[in-house]
């Protein structure tokens, strides 16, 4: 559905997207992961045909966005990072007006709007002003709005940022349903659990480049171990103790507050530590997650 080859976007002398290749297939949920400033949103904008590429190739449903912008946009549903609902309009009017922007008939929209209100669980709020909704409701309405033209591809830029856990789970459920109906999802996120929950395949981006590509499980297998053992000895002792247990696991990482040991069997390694006569203040054995992959690939430095 979407093919990018050597895709580049340059703003002045800042390279936002630096020659990336990827493909999104029909019906899959494709994720773009990366820290802030990795080039995720810029990539999304180029796919959404509201930003022209500087170089490389990009086709969406076989069309070139630089030439066929309006046609491509008719195929897409866009859910931007910041809710940009029409604050002057009521909930149902937001859906109706947006449908009209696509040129859809009033008759078609009359039933479509009701269908979408139900999907977004907002039927009871239909006459509320958009600005009166809670964060989760706003996001659901924005997603419903993105579906008004029955798009083949739904683009979601950080769909659950800023939502509470309940609201996130409701949203994931709604996105699953869309996927079941065959809508192709393109999602950017920096939440690893979200990527693991939703994405069939993903790319990890950093500084405009692709660092890794694959399914969540595949990436964990390639870039992290099966399990992670986290032990804390107190901030002052971590470095000193780390030297004694460096041989354990595949890889050890010393952080200011804790030591991470990447291994196949965390419990065994914990026993080994205890046998050395060391007594961690706390210890935790957990399954490795995409977060470990992500941090390994993009580093721990804070991106401002």
């Amino acid at each position: 559905m979407i093919v990018a080859r050597g895709l580049r976007k340059v703003y002045g002398d800042f390279v936002a997207v630096d020659g990336i290749d990827f493909e999104v297939r029909k019906g899959e949920a494709f994720g773009l992961l990366g820290p802030n400033g990795a080039g995720k949103s810029t990539t999304m904008k180029m796919i959404a045909s509201v930003s022209k590429r500087t170089g490389g190739e990009l086709t969406i449903l076989g069309l070139d966005p630089n030439k066929r912008g309006p046609e491509i946009r008719a195929h897409l549903g866009v859910v931007p990072q910041q809710d940009n609902l029409d604050r002057e309009l009521k909930v149902h009017e937001n859906l109706f007006a947006y449908g009209r922007f696509f040129g859809l008939s009033r008759k078609f929209l009359k039933t479509k709007v009701e269908e979408l209100l139900e999907f977004a669980q907002l039927t009871e709020k239909r006459n509320a002003k958009a600005e009166e909704l809670s964060g989760g409701m706003k996001r659901r309405l924005t997603i419903a709005r993105g579906l008004v033209n029955e798009p083949e591809i739904l683009m979601l830029d950080e769909p659950t940022t800023g939502l509470d856990p309940q609201a996130r789970h409701i949203l994931w459920d709604r996105l699953f349903r869309l996927k079941e109906q065959g809508v192709t999802l393109v999602i950017t996120t920096h939440y690893m659990d979200e990527a693991e929950q939703l994405c069939d395949r993903l790319i990890v981006m950093d500084k405009g480049k692709i660092m890794a590509e694959g399914s969540p499980a595949d990436l964990i297998k390639r870039f992290a171990s099966k399990e992670v053992l986290e032990v804390r000895f107190g901030s002052s002792k971590n470095i000193e103790i780390a030297e004694q247990i460096f041989h354990l696991g595949h890889r050890t990482e010393v952080l200011p507050d804790r030591i991470l040991i990447y291994s196949e069997n965390g419990e065994e390694d914990l026993q080994a530590i205890l046998k050395l006569g060391l007594e961690p203040v706390t210890s935790l054995v957990r399954r490795s997650s995409l977060e470990d992959v992500f941090l390994r690939l993009t580093g721990r430095t804070l991106v401002e």
């Binding site: 912008g69 008719a74 195929h75 859809l104 078609f108 033209n149 798009p151 065959g182």
Partner: peptide, 26 residues
């Protein structure tokens, strides 16, 4: 209920009608 349907006059069909008209980008 289907989210990807093919309404008789879909957004795509409407957009495609202008494919060959001048100024279709703006």
């Amino acid at each position: 209920m289907s989210m990807i349907g093919l309404a008789a006059d879909s957004a795509v069909a409407i957009a495609e009608r202008r494919r060959n008209k001048p100024g279709r980008g703006v």
